[in-house]
């Protein structure tokens, strides 16, 4: 028996919206400790990693580990039928399920919707991601990071991110010209202004803005985002989801020819 009930079903809707442009199908692994998922885009440039802890769910039961192979597009179609204030319950009784049941219930418990999504058997393509002590960690407003990436992507396809003890600089060079946006360390009480820089070693890395813009679809999951970088390593962009877990994106850097 597997059953997971999310009080705020809208969070699940937002997660699926945030990854649906990046990955087409995913294996969700359910275990006693919660749900996890890892999937790469078809070009193997970006990876999404989701972890939801069992104690973040209103009800959670998983008697034995199961893998749920899902088409994100089809999952998205079913989740469109859930209201933003609904609870969402995932359920299956089978040991090797061929479908996953969904229950959506509104706050007044006056409307209950029930759907079943056919599952797929997917080759798992799990990568071992080493635990990394990142040499530059930036925590800032997710909306502000999203705005910067969006603005710069009209000038260039790539952005160079350079950290120093005091600031992080986003630079672009394109056919029409060049520019940069520098964000300084700022210990404001307001989330929207706050910028936390933990710089052990400065880094300078270049990334494709197209992917960063896709990651930023997760902006509504968290008011802050953390950018974790080490020289010659993939960027890790993390959105923490309150008590539930985290949504992480990894992006391979652009390297010199």
């Amino acid at each position: 028996m597997f059953e997971a009930k999310l009080q705020q079903g809208v969070i699940f809707k937002k997660i699926v919206d945030a990854i649906k442009d990046l990955v087409k199908s995913v294996n969700i692994d359910a275990s006693t400790s919660g749900l996890s998922m890892q999937a790469m885009d078809s070009a193997h440039v970006a990876l999404v990693s989701l972890k939801l802890n069992e104690n973040g769910f209103k009800d959670y039961r998983c008697d034995r580990p199961i893998t749920l192979g899902l088409s994100i597009e089809n999952l998205s179609k079913i989740l469109k039928c859930a209201g933003n204030d609904d609870t969402i319950t995932l359920q299956t009784d089978e040991e090797e399920p061929s479908s996953l049941k969904f229950f959506f219930e509104n706050q007044q418990a006056s409307k209950i919707s029930e759907f079943s999504l056919n599952l797929m058997s997917l080759d798992s393509e799990s990568l071992g991601i080493p635990d990394t002590d990142y040499s530059s960690v930036i925590q800032m407003s997710s909306a502000e990071f999203s705005r910067i990436c969006k603005e710069l992507s009209s000038i260039s396809e790539t952005v160079e991110i350079e950290t120093s003890k005091e600031s992080v600089k986003f630079s672009v060079q394109g056919d029409i010209g060049a520019g940069s946006i520098t964000v300084k360390n700022n210990q404001s009480d307001k989330d929207v202004d706050r910028v936390d820089l933990q710089i052990d070693q400065p880094v300078k890395l270049t990334f494709a803005l197209r992917y960063l813009n896709m990651f930023n679809k997760a902006v509504s999951l968290s008011s802050t985002v953390s950018l974790n970088m080490s020289e010659e390593n993939p960027l890790m962009v993390e959105y923490k989801i309150d008590d539930l877990g985290s949504l992480r994106f990894y992006l391979a850097p652009k390297i010199s020819d």
Binding site: H44, A46, G128
Partner: peptide, 13 residues
Amino acid sequence: MKQSSLLSFFGNV
């Protein structure tokens, strides 16, 4: 510059 692949950083499990 060229785009690198995640496969060159992370190993298969």
